[in-house]
Design a protein around this nucleic acid. Structure first.
Length: 475
DNA sequence: GCATGATCATGC
DNA sequence: GCATGATCATGC
C-alpha cells in the first residue's frame, strides 16, 4: 500500500525510477525488516510483492498494463575468467498451444505481453538467498528492429510446429534468440493439448529469451552505462568495458550481415546460399574462386575454408556466436567413410561442478544450439571437396541421453574420479576423451589436484546418424 | 574397422 | 600460454 503511493504504475518514468531504488542494492538491504522468505518464491516474485506492492498474476497482459511494461528479474553470473554473462535463459509466458496456433506475431501472447520489458539483472552468487543478491543492471528493453527481424523468424519456426500439431518436437535448438523452453516440474510430467485436435499432448513450454541474446543485452548495457543504469565496482566495470567494446563491434557487424538477407529468406537460407556456389569444388578451387589463400597445414583447415567462404577473418565467428550457432566441419574419407568423432571444448572442471541445473549447464547450451555442419569429402591429392552444408538441432528425444552423459561426467568430476568417464559404447550420443597439448598437459580441479585435460565429444556413430538423416549416405 | 589415447597448428 | 577445432596413431 505504502509502496504503491511511491510510484505511478501508469507512468514508465515513474516505474523505472522506483525500480532504480534497487540499483546496486539487494532486497534485504532496502527492506531490512521484511525478514527472510524461505524457499519458495523467486526473486522476481519478491520484487513484485515487496518493492512494487504488486501481486503477480498470470494474465496475458503485461505486469503494468497501463504503461505497457512487463517486469522481469534475471540472474547474471561471473565466470572463472572474469566475464559477466547471463546465468540462464529468461523464461517468459507459457504457450497455450491451442490458442497460440491462431495468432499472428502481432497478436501472439509473446508480443502482447513482452514487447516492452523492464529488465532487472542481479548478480547470482552461490550460497546467497535471493533477497541478498544485488541488482547490477536495471533498464528498459525495447527490442531493436534488427533484433526483431530474427525474433520474428524464430517465432515463425515455433508457430509452424504448433500449427502443424508438432509442438511435441519443439526444441530450443530450433531457434536463435527466442526459444520455446520446457516449463514445469519434470520433463514429460506436464503435458498440454495441441492446436491440432488429434495430435499427441506435448510437453508444456514457455517463450524464453535465450542466454546468448541476454548476453547481447548485458554487453549493450555495460557499454552504455552512462545512460543505462549499471552498478558494478569501477575496476571491474573498466575491465568489462574493454572486453565488451570488441564484442560490440563484432556483434553490430554480425547483426548487419545477418540482416543483409533478402525478404522471404531466413538467416539459415542466407548462410546456406553463401556455400552453395562452392558445392563439389575442391578447397584449392574454392581458394582460387575467392582469390585468397589460407594456410591449410593445421588440423582445422576445413574450418578455415568455411570461414573463408563466410568471409570471416577472425577465428571466432561473431555472426554465429551472436546467433548461438555452432559451426562444425565433418570430413569424409575418399570412399565416403567417416573416421572421426567430433570434439568440443575442454571440460572446465571448476565450472561444471557449479552447474546445479541441467538446463543451465554448458553442455545443455551446446546440445540445444543450432549447428551448421559443413561436410567435406577427401578427393585426389588430399584436396577435399565441399559436399554439403546443413543446419541441425538435436531432436528433443535425445536430450535425456545427453543429460545422463552430463550428469555422469559431472558426478565423476565432483568425486574427483577422472578415470571412468563414459565411453562411446556407454552412451548413444557422447563420450569423454582427452584433449591437450600432450599427456602431461594438466589443469587443476576443484580439489586442487592436477588432472589431465578432457573434452566433450559426439560419438562417431551419432554423427553418422545425423548425416544419414540429412541425405548423406556413408559407406 | 573401430574405439580411444595422443597430439598439432593457430590465433588471441 | 593456452584453448580450440581438429586429426593422427595405436592396439584390439
Amino acid at each position: 500500500m505504502i509502496a504503491e503511493s511511491r510510484y505511478d504504475k501508469t507512468d514508465r518514468n515513474s516505474i523505472l525510477g522506483h525500480a532504480l531504488l534497487l540499483l546496486g542494492k539487494s532486497i534485504s538491504e532496502l527492506y531490512p525488516n521484511i525478514g527472510t522468505h524461505s524457499g519458495k518464491g523467486s526473486l522476481g516474485q519478491i520484487v513484485e510483492e515487496k518493492h512494487f506492492d504488486y501481486h503477480p498474476n498470470s494474465l496475458s497482459q503485461p505486469d503494468f498494463p497501463e504503461a505497457g511494461v512487463e517486469l522481469k528479474c534475471t540472474p547474471m553470473k561471473t565466470l572463472s575468467n572474469g566475464n559477466t554473462v547471463s546465468k540462464e535463459r529468461l523464461v517468459l509466458n507459457i504457450i497455450n498451444y491451442e490458442k497460440e496456433g491462431s495468432t499472428s506475431f502481432e497478436t501472439s501472447s509473446f508480443w502482447q505481453k513482452n514487447k516492452f520489458l523492464l529488465l532487472m539483472f542481479y548478480l547470482y552468487e552461490q550460497g546467497l538467498k535471493p533477497e541478498e543478491m544485488f541488482f547490477s543492471i536495471i533498464r528498459y528493453w525495447d527490442f531493436p528492429q534488427e533484433d526483431l527481424k530474427i525474433i520474428i523468424d524464430d517465432w515463425n519456426i515455433i508457430i509452424k510446429k504448433i500449427r502443424d500439431g508438432k509442438a511435441d518436437t519443439l526444441s530450443e535448438g530450433d531457434t536463435l534468440f527466442l526459444g520455446a523452453c520446457m516449463k514445469g516440474s519434470a520433463a514429460g510430467a506436464e503435458l498440454r493439448k495441441q492446436f491440432v485436435k488429434n495430435a499427441p499432448e506435448a510437453q508444456q513450454r514457455a517463450y524464453s529469451l535465450k542466454s546468448i541474446y541476454l548476453n547481447h543485452i548485458i554487453v549493450d548495457s555495460i557499454l552504455n552505462s552512462t545512460v543505462i543504469n549499471v552498478s558494478l565496482d569501477k575496476k571491474k566495470k573498466f575491465e568489462i568495458i574493454r572486453k565488451c567494446e570488441k564484442i560490440r563491434e563484432e556483434s553490430s557487424n554480425a547483426i548487419k550481415s545477418i540482416n543483409e538477407y533478402k525478404e522471404g529468406e531466413t538467416f539459415e537460407d542466407a548462410i546456406i546460399n553463401k556455400f552453395v556456389p562452392y558445392y563439389n569444388k575442391s578447397i584449392s578451387e574454392i581458394q582460387a574462386m575467392i582469390g585468397r589463400n589460407i594456410s591449410l597445414s593445421a588440423k582445422d583447415f576445413a574450418y578455415s575454408v568455411a570461414r573463408l567462404i563466410l568471409d570471416v577473418k577472425t577465428k571466432k565467428i561473431a555472426e554465429f556466436e551472436k546467433a548461438g550457432v555452432i559451426l562444425k566441419t565433418i570430413q569424409l574419407e575418399n570412399n565416403g567413410r567417416l573416421k572421426e568423432s567430433m570434439s568440443f571444448k575442454n571440460i572446465n572442471y571448476l565450472e561444471i561442478i557449479k552447474e546445479n541445473v541441467w538446463e543451465d549447464s554448458y553442455w545443455y547450451s551446446v546440445i540445444s544450439s543450432r549447428f551448421l555442419f559443413v561436410v567435406f569429402q577427401k578427393g585426389e591429392n588430399k584436396n577435399p571437396i565441399l559436399k554439403k552444408v546443413f543446419f541441425w538441432g538435436m531432436p528433443v528425444s535425445d536430450y535425456v541421453e545427453s543429460q545422463r552423459y552430463w550428469n555422469d561426467t559431472r558426478n565423476k568430476i565432483v568425486d574427483g574420479d577422472f578415470s571412468h568417464f563414459l565411453k562411446s559404447t556407454e552412451n548413444n550420443i557422447s563420450h569423454v576423451r582427452p584433449k591437450g597439448k600432450n599427456s602431461n598437459d594438466l589443469t587443476e580441479d576443484a580439489n586442487g589436484t592436477m588432472q589431465r585435460k578432457y573434452c566433450y565429444w559426439f560419438n562417431r556413430r551419432y554423427i553418422l546418424s545425423i548425416l544419414e538423416n540429412n541425405g548423406i549416405f556413408t559407406e
